[in-house]
Design a protein around this nucleic acid. Structure first.
Length: 116
DNA sequence: CGATTGACGTACG
DNA sequence: TCGTACGCCAATC
């Protein structure tokens, strides 16, 4: 019946999978996900993948994914520029000036947590 | 079909 | 230490 493409085989779905694994109240970076998938230098693709994360189900917590510096660079893609910060603060993450506070402590590294 | 862009990261000066 | 340049690869113009 539904002959949906094998998106599970797509690089994008792998990004979504890792993003969903991010525990609540923690954040990770595009490069960390890309590196975990073996495309460390293709961090841009991770961000591009998030571009379609909104139409993927279950929804991908893209708000838990920030750049390497902990800056909410993709906040403009959440409908409203403050939506991403609101979601993060709702999970207990403090954000100020689009910058995640204690990012170093909240940083969730798939390479370590998932123990490759 | 070619050039540009983009939610990043690393390298080099 | 800070600023600039380049690479990634797919989507868009």
């Amino acid at each position: 019946m539904k002959k949906e493409k094998n998106k599970l085989d797509s690089f994008f779905e792998q990004v979504y999978a890792v993003a969903r694994l991010v525990p609540k109240g923690r954040v990770t970076s595009y490069g960390a996900i890309g590196k975990y998938l073996g495309t460390a230098k293709s961090a841009r693709m991770v961000g591009w993948a998030m571009n379609g994360a909104h139409q993927v189900k279950p929804k991908v917590p893209a708000h838990r994914v920030v750049n390497r510096t902990g800056l909410l660079t993709g906040k403009h893609h959440f409908g409203t520029p403050t939506r991403m910060q609101e979601l993060l603060e709702k999970e207990g993450i403090k954000v100020k000036n689009d910058q995640v506070q204690d990012f170093k402590k909240l940083y969730w590294d798939p390479m370590v947590e998932l123990s490759i």
